[in-house]
């Protein structure tokens, strides 16, 4: 007799500096919204999305609880608390603004200190705005490599690469 499918619930954090497109990316992926007001009030907005099943995996269903964090540039105790218990983070960069590539600004080291075993996925967002989509900044690839994180290029505007990015995250979480 087949064992019933296991659903794993995983908390993930969306990291990235101001206006890189964190919220747009997650909203593109998740259609059921909560309420935008929470983000400005307590600095976090939560989304839930069930990933498509991955047959043959230990757990066939994966439920992502995405914590979309605002004002992350200022590492407050509240932000540190919001990091707690995350299994992974999606680190979002704006491909059109190399200034957003500095992971110090988003306190990636603090996130890793709180969650040493958490996986990372790097997302180069706004690829639709690049004049040449086939040559994304190589320094971002090197940065992703140095953190052992897969790098995917996305456009929250057109939807390109968004599902693939979350699929990569799913693979990472079920590894």
């Amino acid at each position: 007799m087949n064992k019933p499918a296991i659903t794993l619930s995983k908390k993930i954090c969306m990291l990235g500096t101001f206006s890189v497109g964190k919220t747009s990316l997650v909203r593109r992926f998740v259609h059921g919204l909560f309420d935008d007001r929470y983000l400005s009030t307590i600095g976090v907005q939560i989304y839930e999305k069930q990933l498509p099943s991955i047959p043959g995996r230990r757990a066939e269903n994966l439920k992502l609880i995405c914590w979309d964090l605002a004002n992350i540039e200022k590492l407050t105790p509240a932000i540190k608390n919001y990091f707690r218990g995350a299994s992974a983070a999606i680190v979002v960069f704006d491909l059109t603004r190399p200034a957003t590539f500095d992971v110090k600004d988003i306190h990636l080291d603090a996130f890793k200190q709180v969650n040493p075993l958490a996986g990372l996925v790097f997302a180069g967002n706004k690829i639709d705005l690049l004049p040449d989509v086939s040559s994304p900044p190589s320094e971002l690839a090197d940065l992703a490599g140095s953190h052992s994180a897969p790098l995917l290029f996305t456009s929250a505007k057109s939807g390109a690469g968004v599902a693939e990015m979350f699929a990569a995250l799913g693979q990472l979480l079920l590894r």
Partner: peptide, 20 residues
């Protein structure tokens, strides 16, 4: 309401209140 979101928000509110 989606209970997963409710539980997440309650946790966030609790954390926020505790630190802020």
């Amino acid at each position: 309401a989606n209970k997963d979101l409710v539980s997440g928000m309650l946790t966030a509110i609790r954390d926020f209140a505790q630190t802020a």
